[in-house]
Amino acid sequence: MAFKPKIVGFLCNWCSYAGADLAGVSRIQYPPNIRIIRLMCSGRVEPFFVFEALKQGIDGIIIMGCHPGECHYMSGNYEAEIKFNFIKKMLNFINLSDRITLKWVSASEGIRFAKVVTEFTEFIKTLGKSPIQKSKNNSDLIFSLTAMQQSMNNYRMRVLMGRKRKITEQKNVYGEKVSIDEFEELENKAIIDEYNRERISLILKKHPLSVKNLASSLDLDEKSVLDYIVWLRSKGIVDVDKIQGLTPYYISIQED
């Protein structure tokens, strides 16, 4: 049986959704795999949605908004782009970043809409089924996506996403513009750290593990795991469960 990818589109009401309507009015044909979710603005795309969709086994996600400079709400599409890049960087850790894309489609671009959807659908077909669906042994991926979902909810990530544009494009509170390279160095480190901290605190909810256990099951080096444990302990998220021989085992002490 041929692979029929499931694709979710998050479309802004004013440009892309109207563009999709125009394709309809103009009877421009495109593959039937996409289900469109209407949002008022692409800036509404909450990273949580994307990870949730992927967890459900969706094969591809396309976010569409107004062309740069044309946002109905002044700058929502720029916000969408920032969040998209954060999401993409995270998905890189589990090789799923190709399955999401961000496109600008205006209300007058019915043809472009159809083309974008067609191309993305074809591309997803070449990738094949979402690994979540493909294998019953998908708990590792679900686990990683959950960790991403939660880390993107954390205050630090929200601040970095929320203030990036202002700080790097206009000026920060000191009236200075922070270079994009400097900001992204911090951003990249934050993404890695928050993701790994979430993974560790999630995994420790199930059963106590040592630094070495964690390092091998999360594919991290032991020194970094210890540093994360130090941080999580200082925040009251994990604590020592027991010491076996010479090795402490840690457990999450956070209530759900």
Binding site: K212, A215, E222, L226, V240, I243, L246, P248
Partner: peptide, 17 residues
């Protein structure tokens, strides 16, 4: 301090015997 008083070695968090 970092290890909340446990004596651990930095490479892997084991107790240095």
């Amino acid at each position: 301090g970092p290890y909340s008083g446990l004596v651990l070695r930095p490479s892997d968090g084991d107790i240095p015997e």
